[in-house]
């Protein structure tokens, strides 16, 4: 019933799932606030990989006219790349804001451990 060939053939997606879960794990389980956001970045990059993978076409080439154009060239779908460029910007701004908050938290509380922060609150 289960098509193993299909599952193994899409190892990109397996990597995406594993990386996503690693990132989520770090965000939820890790106590250190910086580590949490490292986890977020891992999670985000895995999602980007997901988008890029699905935009890719077998035998396709980058959607750049340098290849000479023509109708026989198969381009990969450019839209996911565009979306991801936006998402990367979003991710970096979130991270930057988070890290600046983390610095503030460390200045105020002297710790970055979420358990201790809950006690101090």
């Amino acid at each position: 019933m289960v098509n193993f060939g299909f599952l193994l053939g899409h190892y990109n997606y397996w990597a995406v799932v594993v990386l996503f879960l690693i990132g989520l794990y770090a965000m939820i389980v890790k106590k250190n606030l910086i580590k949490k956001f490292m986890g977020l970045n891992i999670m985000d990059t895995s999602i980007f990989l997901f988008y890029i993978s699905m935009g890719d076409v077998e035998g396709g080439v980058s959607p750049i006219i340098a290849h000479g154009g023509g109708s026989d060239v198969i381009y990969v779908n450019p839209l996911p790349s565009v979306l991801i460029l936006t998402a990367i910007v979003v991710a970096i701004s979130t991270t930057a804001l988070a890290l600046s908050l983390i610095i503030k938290i460390y200045e105020e509380y002297g710790t970055l451990d979420s358990d201790r922060l809950v006690e101090l609150m």
């Binding site: 890029i52 993978s53 990969v76 996911p80 790349s81």
Partner: peptide
Amino acid sequence: AYVQLNSPDVGFTEAAVG
């Protein structure tokens, strides 16, 4: 990996930003 997947633009951005 992004460049390998035919998305050089994202690859460069990720290298610079990530």
